[in-house]
Design a protein around this nucleic acid. Structure first.
Lengths: 229, 229
DNA sequence: TACAAAATATGATAATTATCAGGTTTTGCC
DNA sequence: GGCAAAACCTGATAATTATCATATTTTGTA
């Protein structure tokens, strides 16, 4: 019926590849395959997780609600990425909510297998550590961007990021379609400001739009804007 | 002569406590004790580190230079904390500079010992992982603060953070004294704006100042401001 | 299809924050 | 002690961004 982790391609991209045969077998036997519809939550901020999620398909936004009622999207997680490992490792409630940006397929893996493997297989632990180190670096970069770049620059970065990480369709639109509000929450600005900048970029020919869809029209100009020219 | 890691109190606060006797002995034999004067750098952004630093005394600011020439302070590391492990683990150049905020004493530990221990002692790996998970959560919180809170709110948070984490002197000033520019770089604002807010807070009786020194005068009002009242 | 709700869009205005320009005070050092 | 450099401070102004108000378009669904 369901495919086995041992044969799963997705695993090659994340720390699960450092597991040995037996460990993978255990994971495979206890994992639960789930379909999450667009807009549904994998988990909400503050929940205790009893496992992690391995993304097989689709994209999830990881966000945190601030006191003023706005969501800040801290990270987008897509195929091959693992969600929830931070709070499982720290044995804390999650500090972020995970909501599906489009329809998703994920495998839920109970935390016992993860913690057991961490405690016995150093290769796995180091692999997880490497991924976490990478995430931490990215978070540092986001902090600097937030504080030192203008909203326009961050919007431009967001478009290039989505192009480079999720690609574009045959007709040149970004494969991953976000709502204007999601863009605003990634960039950390008001939805109206976000929409205004999209209009401006379109007028200037930096991007093109068609309904919700957005495409990069002039990568160099966007890059120049990011670099402060 | 120099004290041995086995007896070092500082170690109790960081992941080195998960090392066993032999491992600690190796660390102790190869570590190098260093004194860093205020303003000197432990390392600069982009350097390859061949070891990590365990802070015995003093405080270091970890910052990243942005394109516009401003430094963003991402984290302050003090007694008991380990600096540089992220880039050693990821086997990358550092993404941050580390500069002493006051006179420091640190122990430099060659990376081979760290990576060897990571690969052989799962307890150590998991302990490092826990610390990294904690750092990542803090970084997420900073991201949200940066994007959702005003400069005033972030300034207020900075004062309370310093009070709670570094304490205050007998006469009620913050133990850790930062320059106005450093405050600005923590909070992510222009130095002038930072100074202006300090004046305002002083006028309103939220804080008191004496030269460079700053003290929390009305914790509740600062907290109310942070909470948006 | 029709209709309500949600998302997108735009204008007017206010609030926040940065920048520039000039001061004063403090600090480090000869 | 004296002097230059650095840090601190304040005012005036400009730029950026948020907020509020109000259309318009799209979407989901009865």
């Amino acid at each position: 019926m369901e495919s086995r982790c041992e044969n799963c391609i997705v695993r090659q991209f994340n720390s699960l590849r450092a597991m040995n045969k037996e460990e993978l077998k255990k994971v495979s036997d206890s994992k639960v395959h789930k379909k999450i519809k667009k807009g549904e939550a994998l988990f909400e901020e503050g929940e205790k997780l009893d496992g992690i999620f391995c993304v097989r398909d689709g994209v999830s936004k990881l966000s945190k609600l601030s006191a003023n009622g706005k969501d800040q999207i801290v990270k987008l997680a897509s195929k091959g990425e693992v969600i929830g490992q931070r709070s499982v490792i720290a044995e804390e409630s999650t500090n972020l909510s995970a909501v599906a940006v489009n329809d998703m397929e994920v495998c839920f893996i109970p935390k016992e297998i993860i913690t057991n493997t961490l405690n016995t297989n150093p290769n796995f632990a180091v692999e997880v550590l490497r991924h976490m180190a990478h995430d931490l670096k990215e978070a540092d970069d986001v902090i600097v961007n937030m504080s030192q770049k203008t909203v326009k620059q961050r919007m431009a970065e967001a478009f290039l990021y989505l192009k480079n990480n999720y690609g574009e369709t045959a007709d040149g639109f970004l494969t991953l379609t976000l709502s204007r509000e999601d863009y605003a929450n990634v960039v950390g600005t008001a939805t109206e400001s976000c929409i205004r900048i999209i209009s401006e970029f379109k007028k200037k020919g930096f991007i093109k739009t068609s309904g919700k869809q957005i495409g990069v029209a002039d990568e160099k100009q966007l890059q120049d804007l990011i670099d402060g020219f």
